[in-house]
Simulated scan of single mutants.
Amino acid sequence: MGTKTESERTYKIGFIFLDEIHHIFHFISIATELSKTQKVSILTYPSNHDLLRRSIKELDGDNITVEELPTSAFRSFTDRIKGRELPRKGFWIKKNKKYILKTFDAVVFTDYFHKYLLRDRKPGKTPKLLKFPHGTPGRAYAFNKSQLDFDFQLIIGNFQYQQYKEMGLLGNHPAITGYAKLDALKAKERNFSFGNKKPVVLYNPHFDPNLSSWKHEGLEVLDYFYNQEHFNLIFAPHLHLFQENKGGHKASEIPEKFYRKKNIHIDLGSLKSIDMSYLNSADLYVGDVSSQVYEFIITPKPCIFLNPNELQYENDFSFRFWKCGEVINSAKQLNEALTKATADFAKYRTVQKKITEENYYTEEGSTASERGAKAIISYLDKALA
């Protein structure tokens, strides 16, 4: 099953990419599928864009055009002075909105920087604004009232659909198509090895200061693995944790001894931290509120969750992932939790499988990317008839 429809029209579709590299895998495979029959551009800022271009090549997306559009000269100057790697999105969109509004039939966002286009669209409400998720909906951030600004919503599974419906966030044109990130990463096997047979634990704290385990327990977690020899540890936090304007922490907080320990691997933001290499390689997951755990349990495996803030989470859907393993309040409980994690895993396996089925729609004979591209073309055929 491919992306072909009865459509005789060809649409110009622009994908806005102004974010960190972890957004790429959430749109690139659908962009590639669309480019087989449509005119697809990725609209971004001037840079090397090594991962973006490599991903396009791996997926045979030769028909995709990468358009590097500058922000204003003044904003570019101040960005350089302040050491910003990314342009400020609002200023970039303001600078390029006339071109975008005039050129494209549809524009895709993986985040919520669409307001300037929404306000200034043509009387016929074009281009259409399409919303992609940039991960598995888990915490409240994914359930943003701005969802209703979009003309079309790509939905990855039944849980997301039902939550949007119950919360009044479901627009007039949602399409449940599955998790395209998995298609984007199939082109190349990705993993990581310590070169020994010890079990591998992944510690993946989030950056949100109110929810992350790093501030209160992070160094204690690293100390535990430093002082034992049974496990290997991959410390790969959310990309934002050690960004000053996001998580607010500095890499200098991590003592050098942890980098020198052979059974500890630290990665604060390389490609492997976002391309599922560590998720595929780990035998156990230790985390807090990162939705990456949903990708980890696609193949059911033991999980442990840190709740140092002693949050009351039992009836909060934002903590649904904490049903997948034991929840502990302190790194002091880590040794006992790891000892029990594999032995007690049978009671969590069924829960994990059920959550994965709810999270990710699948269908025999087609990929999520093919279904997503087909749904977009079908929507545009009706909306722009």
Score class of each variant (00 low, 15 high):
G2E: 08
K4E: 12
I28T: 05
I30A: 15
A31H: 02
T32C: 09
S35L: 12
K36T: 13
Y45E: 06
L51G: 02
L52R: 01
I56D: 02
L59S: 06
A73H: 01
K94Q: 07
D105M: 06
F113D: 12
H114D: 06
Y116S: 11
P123I: 10
T126L: 06
L129D: 03
P137C: 08
L154K: 09
Q160K: 08
Q162P: 01
Q163W: 11
K165P: 06
N172K: 14
T177V: 14
L182T: 09
K197H: 14
L202W: 14
N204V: 12
W214E: 09
K215P: 01
E217M: 10
L219G: 03
V221E: 08
F225Y: 04
E229L: 05
H230V: 13
H238P: 07
L241I: 11
L241W: 10
K246S: 13
H249Y: 15
K250E: 13
S252N: 11
I254C: 09
P255R: 05
L268M: 08
M276N: 14
Y285G: 09
V286S: 04
V289N: 12
F296M: 04
I304A: 07
N309H: 15
N315V: 05
A331P: 05
A331F: 10
Q333W: 07
E336F: 12
Y360I: 15
E363L: 08
R371T: 00
L384H: 06
A385M: 06
